Amino acid sequence: MRMVTISSLFPNKNDPKLGIFVKTRLRHFLATYQNIDLEVIAPVPWFPFKHKIFGEYAKYAGVPYQETIDGMTVYHPRYLVLPKIGMYLTPKFMAKAITRTLTKLHRARRVDLIDGHYFYPDGVAICQAAESLDIPFTCTARGTDINLIPQYPKALAMLRTVFDKAAHMMTVCQALKDEMVKLGVPDERVTVLRNGVDLNLFSASDNAKQAQLKAQGQINEKLVLSVGWLIERKGHHLIIEALQNLDNVRLVIAGDGPDLVKLKQLAEQCKVSERVQFLGGVDQPTLNQWMMTADALVLASSREGWANVLLESMASGTPVVATKVWGTPEVVKPESQGELVERNVADIARGIQHVLSKDVDREAVRRYAEQFSWKETCEGMMEIVDTIVKQSARGAIS
């Protein structure tokens, strides 16, 4: 079987952490089903300037057209992005970029199925490319593509075409499937395939090991970790403000993003800057070390599909405090020893204090995370793609 995965949310040479959740699912899928021949098309915005004054867009300038990532051949065709005014034009430009590369691959050897990720703009573009070459496609919803984008009527109209023409659709949590059903998608056309956690990459510290790690780092306070892109939606600002109500607590923030200066200024204004440390972007092994050291991880997002960082923290033995949005309550259950909170400073502070005051069994937190392996997800994905390819072959024969 030959598959092509298509998603703009996929790592590249200049941004190895981008869309790592898509790469991780593929890596486990290919390890489980080694008969799958898979390539990746990960389109990137066209941008000619590499200088850092151009911010995040400068990252795209040096991305090669073709590279190999974890043994997968990845193509990066360019598409035009018009900042702030191009929301409804981006799917068209992306479709043209995808179609050029996909056509070359399909002509060289037939592509049996397209595995698409993120419904907008990617899914809309994938739908157009797949239809032009008569290739069946699936699409996986991951968060804002379903819990935010459909609020725009013109975008929703484009999404409805994808809903109608996809061979099947997946979501990473039940909450996103429920929202798709509300939008009119038949229940039987959507399958929940939640993300798993890499239990080998994210090792756990028991209570003794965690104490040793804190001692090595000369950390005498309770250590709270916040992870994610530095933007309002991730809620780092709420955690900084919550520190004002928490004594003897140190906050470490891992992530890059446009709000770095603003968050540092907020820490100064709240008079907690001496208790806030900004790590910048870190790789997963480094993140695991911080998680093994932390007493709690806090995720104060306004929107999430299925937040991988929650399971990564729990796999490290660290309980979580998280806002109860979308798929998060499906992850943070009482037996995880974590706490669900409302998205406001007072309740976030309360949740942190509650978790920090408990006698947490870190080995039990790890055992809870171990039920979220990738095995079930990979099996479910294989059942879906195998059914579609067989149906497509029968249709071609008839």
Rank of each mutant, 00 (worst) to 15 (best):
H237N: 15
R275Q: 11
V309E: 11
T191P: 03
N195Y: 05
G235Q: 09
W290D: 04
N200H: 12
K264Y: 01
V272R: 08
T191K: 06
I219M: 06
L243G: 12
P258V: 12
Q277E: 13
R250Y: 00
L287M: 07
L238A: 14
L260S: 07
H237I: 07
K209Y: 00
A204I: 00
P186W: 00
M291E: 09
D256P: 00
I239Y: 12
L251C: 04
S273M: 02
L223W: 04
R194Y: 02
F278K: 11
E188Y: 07
A254K: 01
I219V: 13
V309Q: 11
S205R: 03
I253Q: 01
L266G: 08
L238Q: 14
E274D: 15
V185K: 03
M292K: 15
N200V: 05
N288V: 01
A215M: 06
S205K: 05
V272I: 13
L225H: 10
L279C: 14
L193E: 03
S301N: 06
L213A: 09
L260C: 05
G255S: 01
S226W: 02
L223E: 03
Q269N: 14
R275W: 02
S273R: 12
R303H: 14
N207F: 04
S203V: 11
R275P: 07
L246V: 11
L297H: 08
